[in-house]
Design a protein around this nucleic acid. Sequence first.
DNA 1: TTCAGCAGCTTGTACCTACCAGTTGAGCCA
DNA 2: TGGCTCAACTGGTAGGTACAAGCTGCTGAA
Lengths: 264, 264
Amino acid sequence: MTQWGIMGGMSSQPLYRRVADVLRNEINAKAFPPGARLPSERDLCDRFDASRNTVRAGLNVLVTEGLISASQGLGYEVRSHEVFNLNASRFENLTFPQNGDAYSTDVTHAGRRPHQEFRVEMQPAPAIVAEQLRVPEGTTTVLRFCHRYVDGVPWSTQATSYPMWLVEKAPRLADPGDIAEGTTRYLAGLGVEQVGYFDDISTRMPTPDEARLLQAGAGVPVLVWVRTGYSEDKPIRCTVTTFRGDLNHMNYEIGNIAAREAGE
Amino acid sequence: MTQWGIMGGMSSQPLYRRVADVLRNEINAKAFPPGARLPSERDLCDRFDASRNTVRAGLNVLVTEGLISASQGLGYEVRSHEVFNLNASRFENLTFPQNGDAYSTDVTHAGRRPHQEFRVEMQPAPAIVAEQLRVPEGTTTVLRFCHRYVDGVPWSTQATSYPMWLVEKAPRLADPGDIAEGTTRYLAGLGVEQVGYFDDISTRMPTPDEARLLQAGAGVPVLVWVRTGYSEDKPIRCTVTTFRGDLNHMNYEIGNIAAREAGE
DNA sequence: TTCAGCAGCTTGTACCTACCAGTTGAGCCA
DNA sequence: TGGCTCAACTGGTAGGTACAAGCTGCTGAA
């Protein structure tokens, strides 16, 4: 048996790291293509002449990196990524608002099946939202929640807050269920026109709640997209969207990129 | 001693998860504020009546979530986040190009100390870049690398690829070192004007190399920002920037948000 | 007074065992 | 044939041990 801490001499890396490195290289070299299963922990123990704990530590590195996922009874599987591109600068185009909501048309257009669940609540505004809407923290706002799925897979969760002064003008915001023509259109019909947005994009590891909702395994970060919509004189809404980072990219088009479309 | 698998009865959660949950709540409730040190593993063993392995498994959950970081000999510390906002829609403003490079002015403006290291190489274009520049994969391009620091902390790595036809027109692109007036200006002076951008933003866990370069501990995802610049008729450059996700947000301003600036 | 070195703390790596729990397929019985 | 059980795999959780290695402060010698 290998003695502790003596190390092969040729390598100063800890054993569990070497396990991770070797497997990572094999995965990247497509020796284990996406969807393939790795050998079992016990097999890897034999191969690397290491204990099960050490092999597990190595595999855990790859799980944390989002390269593989583990399931009890089945083994370790190489993750595959099929990303969805969200064009955020065209998403709710100011000059050409679509009928209905932008998400459904976008997903359907990509040949995939959208599904969404709505929920409406009145809640005190969290700090980040309050700051964007320029109301005191804790002020009541109307929150429209939305869980979105693509082909049955949880895709994103969205929560839009509207300040109370706007809800008084536009009472249907507080109705449960979707607003068929789209909220942007509904508000425009009432004389409240969105003339601009401010977007803030960040990333972090999901909270346990988010990981459960989005079915994001360990090693999958989330993209957090905060969009604040403005009328001529003040902010009118703040939408916080949380995406699974392994499934989504965000795109922005700035200026004239006619050359891009021409070439495609 | 607690017998294996029998569980306290009141809780079906594994012990290591309860350890993680309790500590996470205490951290979020500021019982351990950012920068504070957690009790040592041995102390936590006593507190939770668990083995060191189990406590370590619980702490590892929080490390993976990016909430805490560990250092040998010192203990576990609660991470603090001071984020830097990068205004990507103003960053290289098409109508008001700044003198010098945008990053330095942006960072200096925030009252912080910028530092960057340049490197120039000729390399075959990787698949993603080749697709954006619309040249065959593996075609030689000029790559300008840049490692950026803020207050001495590694902040981002940037790699800009220029197609060879452009380098023939603009030979200084292949010179080592910075281009003082900014590459955008230099190119504009040669009649190659950038009229638009396409941005692609994604997130993932860093590769081991990236984690080393950015000094990103476990549980810190990276933001990957791919900006392709277009002239009137074709793509002229592709910049891939990799940020530490815990230190950076990206902002976009779309349409008229005069109301935002007015209120600040 | 200064500083080298050690004691005593911390986490890191590595090994062992034992048992729980999910998945699958072989094989038996109705 | 259909359906059930069970054995044999998979990873998940939990306990233990030992020693390596990084950090800090005390202590004693120069």
